[in-house]
C-alpha cells in the first residue's frame, strides 16, 4: 500500500471526522461538568441550603423560561440546517441570540439586586456571584458562537450534509441550558 493510497482511503472515510468532532465536544462538555460541579459543591459546602429572603424568585423563574425558550429555538435552528431550510435556520438562530441577550439582561438585573442584599463578601453572595458569573461567561461565549454560525449559515457555509459547526455550537448552547437547570435550584430553591 502506497502513501497515496492510505491518504485516499483516509479521505474516503467521511464518517470519521464528524464522529471525532462529536466525541471531542462531548469530552469538552464532560470536563466542563467538573468545573460546574466544583462551583456547585462549593455553594453547599460554604452555606448548606441557606437562602436569603431577598431572592427575586419571579425574576429567576422568568429568566429560566427565557433560557428554555432559547434552547428550543437553538434546537429548531439545528434541525432547520439539518433539513436544509436556511431561512428558518437564520430566523431560529437569531431568535436564540435575542433570547440569550434578554437572559443576560435578567442576569445583570439579578446581579444588581444581589449587590444590594447579598454582596460577594457574604458566604452566600460569594457562591452566588461565582456561579452566576461562571454561567454568564458561558452564555456570552455561546452567544458569540451562535452569532458566528448564524452569519456563516446565512452565507451558505453550511448544508444538510455539512452542518457540524451548527451542531457543535447548538450542543454547547444546550449545555449552557443544562448547567442552568442545576444552578437555578441550587441558588434559588434548595
Amino acid at each position: 500500500m502506497t502513501a497515496e493510497t492510505v491518504h485516499a482511503e483516509y479521505h474516503q472515510d467521511t464518517t470519521f471526522q464528524p464522529r471525532a468532532n462529536r466525541l471531542g465536544l462531548w469530552m469538552f462538555i464532560f470536563s466542563e461538568c467538573f468545573l460546574f460541579a466544583a462551583f456547585l459543591s462549593a455553594r453547599y459546602f460554604t452555606t448548606g441550603t441557606y437562602r436569603p429572603e431577598e431572592l427575586n424568585q419571579l425574576l429567576a423563574l422568568g429568566i429560566t423560561g427565557i433560557l428554555l425558550a432559547s434552547s428550543i429555538s437553538a434546537f429548531m435552528a439545528e434541525t432547520s440546517m439539518k433539513f436544509n431550510q436556511r431561512k428558518k435556520f437564520v430566523i431560529f438562530s437569531s431568535m436564540t441570540i435575542v433570547l440569550g441577550l434578554i437572559f443576560m439582561g435578567g442576569v445583570v438585573l439579578e446581579l444588581y439586586e444581589a449587590t444590594l442584599h447579598y454582596p460577594p463578601s457574604t458566604p452566600y453572595g460569594s457562591s452566588y456571584f461565582m456561579l452566576i458569573g461562571l454561567h454568564a461567561f458561558h452564555v456570552i461565549t455561546g452567544l458569540i458562537g451562535v452569532s458566528i454560525v448564524t452569519v456563516l449559515g446565512a452565507r451558505g457555509y453550511f448544508g444538510s450534509t455539512n452542518y457540524w459547526g451548527v451542531e457543535g455550537v447548538m450542543k454547547y448552547w444546550h449545555f449552557v441550558d443544562l448547567a442552568w437547570v442545576l444552578i437555578y435550584p441550587t441558588l434559588y430553591l434548595f
Partner: peptide
C-alpha cells in the same frame, strides 16, 4: 425533507413542553 423536519421539530417542541411543565 419537510416531513422529516416536521417530525424532528415536533419531538423538540414536546421535549421543551415537558421541561416547562416540570419547571
Amino acid at each position: 425533507d419537510r416531513e422529516g423536519f416536521r417530525k424532528a421539530s415536533r419531538a423538540g417542541v414536546i421535549a421543551a413542553i415537558w421541561i416547562a411543565v416540570l419547571t
